[in-house]
């Protein structure tokens, strides 16, 4: 129950004078009507229950709970309707966006889009989901294709580092194939002179490729690099657990004092072995859920999602970059 205006005014006046106007007793009196009934001991409660059962068979309570159940159903019915309408509205809006901003597989168009933005993320991260309905191959192929598309957009926009998170880590098993798919996609976008590419997973050697030799004489494209990092759930909590194990063993062999463990040490180790903090995290799902994304690194990352969006789409990428350019970092100030 909210305060009535009269009581709120009395409370604020008292607060203004540093709580010296009212005595504690007066304050209690002010609050009393708003408090729930005092808790009863278990014995008292049982006794009360018994008496109520005998006298009125709990009719009042039964009616009350029925009334609440009814209101619950009504709320959810209306909310359901609202959600449907919102989803329909967003579907239309997102469609219009994606028609208006389409990349047409042309890096120049993407560059045109991002040229007006004040700043770009240096490290972009995305969460992809493996949608496999029993068929292993189809979901994987889709995933690789999405990863390649995103890589191509980033290369066009001039974002040097992308990390792609997928919970199960299936992509990590297909590192060379992913590299090949991305390289193909890049050549489809850029033609002959595409940027040099490295695809890696934490704790593993990267698969690298030189920029294509043909037609890259003194070209500005040649200087470009794109590095892709594939992440999975084991780079999240498990990496912190592994670090703890290592530190514990060191402490057990008296190589380290527990007091030496500082945020800087943990940060240095985790950014060394997994990755640094991404600037922007794009979610392509309909709502915000991190599904096991590395917790340490996500501290100040701008999280972007488009409400009720389904699937990887260029408009999400573009709108995410716009949002990032507008956002201001205050670092607690």
């Amino acid at each position: 129950m909210p305060f009535t205006t009269k009581d709120l005014r009395a409370y604020r006046r008292d607060e203004q004078f540093g709580h010296k106007l009212m005595t504690p007793e007066e304050r209690i009196k002010l609050l009393k009507p708003y408090l729930p009934a005092p808790p009863r001991s278990a014995a008292q409660r049982a006794e009360l229950k018994k008496r109520e059962k005998r006298s009125r068979l709990g009719v009042r309570r039964f009616l009350k709970s029925q009334w609440h159940a009814l209101v619950y159903v009504i709320i959810h019915a209306f909310f359901s309707l609202y959600i449907r309408m919102r989803q329909a509205y967003h579907a239309v809006v997102n469609r219009i966006y994606s028609i208006y901003h389409h990349h047409h597989r042309t890096p120049e168009l993407i560059q045109q889009d991002v040229k007006t933005l004040g700043r770009l993320p240096k490290h972009l991260s995305v969460i992809l989901t493996l949608e496999d309905h029993g068929r292993r191959g189809a979901g994987l192929e889709r995933l690789v294709n999405e990863a390649a598309e995103i890589a191509a957009w980033c290369a066009s926009a001039g974002i040097p580092q992308v990390s792609i998170y997928e919970k199960s880590g299936i992509l990590k098993g297909y590192l060379p194939e992913t590299h090949q798919a991305v390289a193909q996609k890049l050549s489809a976008y850029f033609g002959d002179s595409f940027p040099s590419l490295s695809v890696a997973a934490p704790h593993g050697p990267p698969v690298e490729s030189r920029p294509s030799s043909r037609g890259s004489r003194g070209d500005s494209q040649e200087q470009k690099r794109l590095s892709i990092l594939l992440l999975s759930a084991e780079d999240g909590r498990d990496s912190v657990v592994d670090l703890t194990k290592t530190l514990t063993e060191m402490a057990q062999r008296s190589k380290l004092f527990p007091a030496d463990i500082s945020t800087e040490l943990v940060d240095a180790e985790l950014s060394e072995s997994i990755m640094g903090e991404p600037d922007l995290l794009l979610l392509f799902g309909p709502h915000v859920e991190l599904s096991g994304y590395p917790p340490w690194q996500i501290r100040l990352t701008e999280i972007f999602h488009v409400q009720d969006n389904q699937g990887v789409d260029y408009q999400v990428f573009y709108r995410g970059l716009c949002k990032f350019a507008r956002a201001q970092m205050r670092m607690g100030r």
């Binding site: 703890t244 530190l247 514990t248 402490a251 057990q252 527990p258 007091a259 943990v266």
Partner: peptide, 10 residues
């Protein structure tokens, strides 16, 4: 992490 390490080592 620190208290875990302490628990396991001291």
């Amino acid at each position: 992490i620190r208290t875990t390490v302490e628990d396991y080592s001291t």
